[in-house]
Write a protein that binds this DNA or RNA. Structure first.
Length: 466
RNA sequence: GCGGAAUUGGUGAAGUGGUUAACACGCCGGAUUGUGGCUCCGGUAUGCAUGGGUUCGAUCCCCAUAUUUCGCCCCA
């Protein structure tokens, strides 16, 4: 048997429906924030990541999925989304668009050559946003709040937002110098990795878990003390806007992020859920004012974040958040004889073309088996064909909930289904999301008929629940 | 890159160095002559991840590989 590759997953059935639902929420929220969808290639020239993410980062130095193509080009499966989006921004000269800043979002697979564990796969799906062309602290807060609001809308409660500022270049240079001065005298007591980091990227020494509990690490200078006036003021503004947006956060000076392109605001959103795996960072991001120019574009500031959808799913599952997934069918057409089957073929198509979700029998089951199949598929109506009825231009339609059965004229089928499905929905809700009707769920449509699910709804129960 | 645990039908799983690998669910068929969901009856693994080895004999013991899973490191 050929099996899937290590660290990859097949997503299907109800799980696939959940993913689709989450993607719909993401699309709906991004639309409200006016972010445009962008799709960039899954593979890029390796150099993009070497220059963009940073040679010394683990992501580049040991986790890249790279290979030579038949033209002997060095190709890499994208390990993250930002570099590709920024490349596209430059290549397509989006900095020349009239509508600045450029606000983009993506939702796609990334690849990292790692040893899989809970919350860590080789193929992972990330949703992320990038804002290019504004250095306003207000947009920093907006990006963070967008991420938080998506978690909120999905119903996830256990999240914690950590923010920090790496400051501008001057602040970072000063801090870097202070770090080197602090650690150099004790270089021998550091772990092997840190010795290298101290040379190439001293900030990341702070990230080290091996030496985390040592005295030198605890006494290490703190970034926030080295921010110059301008950077400090900027960081305060970000916090002010976050407060205005009602986002709970904590300033955590140890957040430095693993990718080299960040400056000023950096943040991580972690799962704060009992029993969650050790890979508990749900999302993270930050500002990267130097990245566009580093990749050959003009001096354009940027900020973004990415969240792992797989980890989000784990978190939702851990919190037992029930996502509203639609598993029902409008009608199941049943038949036995060949002439009935012929009519079934055309009827099914006609119903489908008129907007009904309809299934029929394809595996020669007897009637009994077809009833069972219709139940399994949660079909609301059963259309039972019978040669005698057909001769009278009639079909039997059975309501699978009330078990009532009626003979209906063929010309009347569409109207009949329309009417009966509508009246069913009055009691329920026809937005298809149904979460507002379940206990313990909040609806976010404000009675305007748009729940986070992106489906339109005009039932009244929304307002009552809100 | 390093370490621990696991792998038995469609599914959840019990189990043993020795003739027919429990049990449950599901599925299929029948009782029910074209109306199911309850009940009863019957059928559902030449097979215990793959490849070697030990043994008279291996699903069980040993080794390797693959995959899964949980950690370390790192990240989403």
């Amino acid at each position: 048997m050929i099996t899937k590759q290590k660290g990859c997953h097949d997503i299907y059935g109800d799980e696939a429906k959940k993913w689709k639902y989450v993607s719909n929420v993401i699309d709906a929220v991004c639309e409200r924030y006016n972010y445009d969808f962008i799709r960039t290639p899954i593979f890029e020239a390796s150099e993009l990541y070497h220059r963009g993410i940073g040679e010394e980062t683990d992501v580049v130095s040991k986790e890249m999925y790279d290979f030579k193509d038949k033209g002997d080009r060095s190709i890499t499966l994208r390990p993250e989304g930002t570099a590709g989006v920024v490349r596209s921004f430059i290549e397509n000269k989006m900095y020349g668009d009239a509508t600045q800043p450029v606000k983009l979002y993506y939702n796609g697979t990334m690849y990292r050559y790692e040893r899989p564990q809970s919350g860590r796969d080789r193929e992972l799906t990330q949703f992320g946003v990038e804002v290019l062309g504004s250095d306003d602290p207000m947009i920093d807060a907006e990006v963070i709040s967008l991420a938080v609001n998506i978690y909120r809308i999905l119903g996830l409660k256990g999240i914690k937002v950590n923010i920090n500022s790496l400051g501008d270049k001057e602040s970072r240079d000063n801090y870097r110098k202070a770090l080197v001065e602090h650690f150099m005298p004790h270089v021998d007591s550091l772990c092997e990795d840190c010795k290298v980091r101290l040379q190439k990227n001293p900030l990341r020494v702070l990230d080290c878990k091996v030496d985390a509990d040592t005295e030198i690490m605890k006494n290490a200078p703190v970034m926030t003390d080295y921010l110059n006036e301008e950077s400090k003021k900027r960081f305060e503004m970000v916090q002010k806007y976050l407060n205005l947006l009602d986002i709970d956060f904590e300033v955590n000076p140890s957040i430095v992020r693993g990718l080299d392109y960040y400056d000023h605001t950096v943040f991580e959103i972690e799962a704060d859920i009992e029993g969650f795996g050790s890979q508990n960072v749900l999302g993270g991001g930050g500002r990267y004012n130097g990245l566009v120019s580093a990749l050959g574009g003009p001096e354009v500031p940027g900020i973004g974040f990415a969240m792992g959808l797989g980890r989000l799913m784990l978190a939702l599952e851990k919190e037992q958040v029930e996502l509203p997934i639609n598993n029902s069918l409008d009608a199941f057409v049943m038949y036995v004889s060949d002439t009935e089957k012929e009519y079934a073929t055309t009827l099914v198509q006609e119903l489908r073309m008129n907007g009904f979700s309809v299934e029929t029998e394809y595996t020669n089951r007897g009637l009994k088996g077809q009833f069972k199949q219709a139940d399994r598929l949660n079909s609301r109506f059963l259309i039972i064909l019978n040669d005698t009825d057909l001769e009278n231009n009639q079909v039997k339609i059975k309501n699978n909930k009330t078990k009532e059965e009626e003979l209906v004229d063929i010309d009347y089928i569409l109207y009949y289904l329309d009417e009966h499905l509508m009246s069913e929905d009055d009691a329920d809700c026809d937005c298809g999301c149904s979460h507002e009707h379940e206990e313990g769920h909040e609806c976010h449509c404000n009675g305007e008929g748009n729940c986070g699910c992106g489906n339109h709804c005009d039932c009244h129960s929304h307002e009552e629940n809100e």
